[in-house]
Amino acid sequence: MTRQEWPLYEVFIRSRSGLSHRHAGSVHAADDEMALNNARDTYTRRSEGVSIWVVRSDRIVASDPAETSAFFDPAEDKIYRHPTFYDIPDEVENL
């Protein structure tokens, strides 16, 4: 345990074309290529994917959960961004 462990990679898998990549979990690997192979062996043993992304976990920039309300606040009072904000008479169709 003297050696530093291999870096952590986050794994994203596209299960079939037409869908976006989705976070599946993480793997350790010495380099990018090994990360792809490890991700394939760990997360797609039953053909769960047609495409894999791996990215070093320490390269991900994330919002701070402690700041969630402040961060997402600006969207909360803008109810006019939703279609239900607008009253349209029932007689008007296809709107």
């Binding site: 993480s26 350790h28 760990t42």
Partner: peptide
């Protein structure tokens, strides 16, 4: 047996999100 290895890896990776290292 390969699945068991895989399950171990899914779980280690879940535990690591809590701030403990694999090592």
């Amino acid at each position: 047996v390969q699945d068991e290895a895989g399950h171990g890896l899914y779980l280690y990776s879940a535990a690591e999100t809590l701030g403990v290292s694999r090592d």
